[in-house]
Amino acid sequence: MHFQKYKYILLLITGVIVNLPAKTLDTNTTAQVFMLVNTCVGCHGIDGSSLGPATPTIAGMRKPLFIKAMQDMKNGLRPSTVMGVVANGYTDEEIEMMADFFSKQKVVRYRQNVDLEKAQRGKELHKQYCDSCHKIEVRTQPLFNIAGQWMPYLRFRLSQFKNGDSMMASALEYFVLKNDSEERLEELIHFYGSQQ
């Protein structure tokens, strides 16, 4: 199976499709933005950097990715525990204001319990199976919110893709097929968890 052809679609999903007009923010907006994001940090950590062990860090998320995540959870397109309810409480405009705020926050990563051998093997697996869509390179804002993310969250997230019909579901199916089991997914998770 070749995933290269999906790259274009992927860019659409994660970037270009969310084509919002750039607006200039008026002066009272700063207070308004804080009013909104202040309600998130009790769960997501100060400025969106979570202390873990599971709730994802949302600091530094690219704006379109953030908006897509919120909209998908709001519309039930993406499974969630609390976020479906939470996202429903905000208008599109408010979501955009919050996306703007969190995308500008510096990510603080906390050390996780990583098995370095697994992480090492995971690095190779990543190159082979995932890197085509999830490039992990040195860039200020990665396309996805995976590298350095809390490992339990990544586990929950991966298991959500099972049995679906998305690109990710196919990628996982392919991975499991090639590796004969799901166990080696752990190596990938340790690799992502080891990224600072």
Binding site: G45, L51, P53, A54, P152
Partner: peptide, 21 residues
């Protein structure tokens, strides 16, 4: 059970994040 387990992990995260706030 996995869903309940994820919420337990999120509950501990909530605790850490709200106390650090």
């Amino acid at each position: 059970l996995e869903y309940r387990r994820s919420e337990a992990a999120y509950a501990y995260s909530w605790y850490k994040n709200i106390t650090s706030d």
